[in-house]
Amino acid sequence: MDSLVVLVLCLSCLLLLSLWRQSSGRGKLPPGPTPLPVIGNILQIGIKDISKSLTNLSKVYGPVFTLYFGLKPIVVLHGYEAVKEALIDLGEEFSGRGIFPLAERANRGFGIVFSNGKKWKEIRRFSLMTLRNFGMGKRSIEDRVQEEARCLVEELRKTKASPCDPTFILGCAPCNVICSIIFHKRFDYKDQQFLNLMEKLNENIKILSSPWIQICNNFSPIIDYFPGTHNKLLKNVAFMKSYILEKVKEHQESMDMNNPQDFIDCFLMKMEKEKHNQPSEFTIESLENTAVDLFGAGTETTSTTLRYALLLLLKHPEVTAKVQEEIERVIGRNRSPCMQDRSHMPYTDAVVHEVQRYIDLLPTSLPHAVTCDIKFRNYLIPKGTTILISLTSVLHDNKEFPNPEMFDPHHFLDEGGNFKKSKYFMPFSAGKRICVGEALAGMELFLFLTSILQNFNLKSLVDPKNLDTTPVVNGFASVPPFYQLCFIPV
Rank of each mutant, 00 (worst) to 15 (best):
Val473Met: 11
Lys275Arg: 12
Gly298Leu: 06
Leu440Tyr: 02
Gly96Trp: 14
Ile181Pro: 00
Thr301Glu: 12
Phe100Leu: 14
Phe267Lys: 05
Thr450Glu: 00
Leu131Arg: 03
Thr130Met: 07
Phe65Cys: 06
Phe134Asp: 15
Tyr347Ser: 00
Leu453Glu: 01
Val75Asn: 00
Gln252Leu: 11
Ile374Thr: 13
Asp414Leu: 04
Thr469Trp: 03
Met136Trp: 15
Thr305Met: 14
Ile74Gln: 03
His276Val: 08
Gly96Leu: 14
Val479Thr: 09
Pro35Arg: 14
Leu362Ser: 04
Ile223Ala: 13
Thr392His: 10
Asn455Leu: 03
Met339Trp: 12
Ser336Val: 12
Lys423Ala: 09
Ser220Leu: 07
Ala173Leu: 02
Cys172Gly: 07
Ile47Asn: 13
Asn378Gly: 14
Cys338Arg: 13
Met198Ala: 08
Lys247Leu: 12
Leu67Pro: 00
Leu453Cys: 06
Ile387Phe: 06
Asn231Cys: 10
Leu170Gly: 00
Arg139Met: 12
Glu203Asp: 14
Ile123Ser: 08
Tyr68Glu: 03
Phe487Ser: 00
His396Leu: 06
Gly332Pro: 02
Lys84Asn: 13
Arg433Tyr: 10
Pro337Leu: 04
Pro30Tyr: 01
Ile47Cys: 15
Phe482Arg: 14
Asp49Cys: 06
Pro402Phe: 08
Leu9Gly: 14
Gln22His: 12
Leu67Phe: 10
Phe226Ala: 11
Leu87Met: 09
Leu156Gln: 00
Ser140Val: 07
Thr304Tyr: 14
Phe428Tyr: 15
Leu233Gly: 03
Val153Met: 06
Ala173Asp: 01
Leu361Ala: 14
Lys72Leu: 02
Asn455Lys: 08
Tyr80Cys: 04
His411Val: 01
Phe226Arg: 02
Lys52Pro: 13
Ser140Asp: 09
Lys52Trp: 07
Tyr61Cys: 02
Ile223Ser: 09
Ser3Glu: 12
Ile50Met: 11
Ser51Trp: 08
Cys151Tyr: 14
Lys383Tyr: 03
Glu155Pro: 02
Asn218Cys: 13
Val60Ala: 11
Leu54Ser: 03
Ala86Pro: 00
Arg329Asp: 09
Glu122Asn: 12
Pro402Ala: 11
Lys421Val: 14
Met129Asn: 12
Cys172Phe: 03
Pro337Trp: 01
Pro31Cys: 04
Leu14Val: 10
Thr348Leu: 05
Cys164His: 10
Phe267Val: 03
Glu246Ala: 10
Asp265Pro: 03
Gly442Arg: 09
Met345Pro: 01
Thr130Glu: 08
Thr469Pro: 09
Thr450Gly: 03
Arg144Val: 13
Leu453Asp: 00
Ile374Val: 13
Ala321Asp: 13
Gln324Leu: 04
Ser115Met: 10
Leu312Gln: 03
Glu326Ala: 01
Ala321Thr: 12
Val330Ala: 07
Asn334Gln: 15
Pro227Ile: 10
Val237Gln: 14
Phe183Pro: 00
Ser58Val: 04
Phe65Trp: 05
Ile222Phe: 09
Arg329Ser: 12
Ala149Pro: 01
Gln193Arg: 09
Phe219Lys: 02
Asp341Val: 03
Met406Pro: 05
Cys179Ser: 15
Pro279Leu: 14
Ile327Ala: 03
Lys459Ala: 07
Gly442Ala: 07
Arg21Gln: 12
Gly417Ala: 09
Ser422Met: 05
Ser127Tyr: 09
Val355Glu: 01
